[in-house]
Amino acid sequence: MSHWYNYPFILILTAGLFLLLVSDSRKMILIAFGSVLLMAFVVNIQFWPFTFSLSKLVTGTMAIVILHFSPVMTPSQSVLGTGKTGKVFRATALVFGFVLIGFSVSTVSTFLSINPEQILLSLFMMACGFIQLGISQNPYRVFLGLITLFQGFEIIYGSLESSLLINGMLAAVDLLIAFVGSYLITNSLKDEEE
């Protein structure tokens, strides 16, 4: 608990992840993901150089904005549907994931020699990404899940590996995921509009 002041930020990030998973509105998803990235930036900046943290924030923001401006697909839903039951299930799955992470965070932190706050952020984001990938068939949700998963992974990997090439390539991967997702959604709707 050396950096106790980070926990409110982690709490906001957690709320953002819940919103990301539960909401069906694109606008809410954008706001939720933006808040997640901002909170991750606020925590990361204490342990990483400013430019490095900023590059992660900018990459993540660009990726979500690119994906956000792809046309809305109908129907936009997970395999569980958009009903209340589906939302409750998604939220419960995330809670279970967070509880599991909560129990293992100190072990992982000691093992990887990374501070627990970053581990917590990273694993929370990865869990949210995994759940999105596991229950969604909608391309928008799948690409959002992939971006969330990779953003989470990059917090751990960025603490371990400082190579410019690899971190640059990971940023390129994030952006390419967003571009491909946007292309895929746009491409699948083009003819319908024509």
């Binding site: 690899i166 390129a172 895929l184 491409n187 699948s188 083009k190």
Partner: peptide, 22 residues
Amino acid sequence: AVFVELAILLMIPLVTTKGTMP
């Protein structure tokens, strides 16, 4: 691994057809 991932992402536009859902 990062380059393989980039190649996989490049494969996605290749395997999709215009006007159909992936």
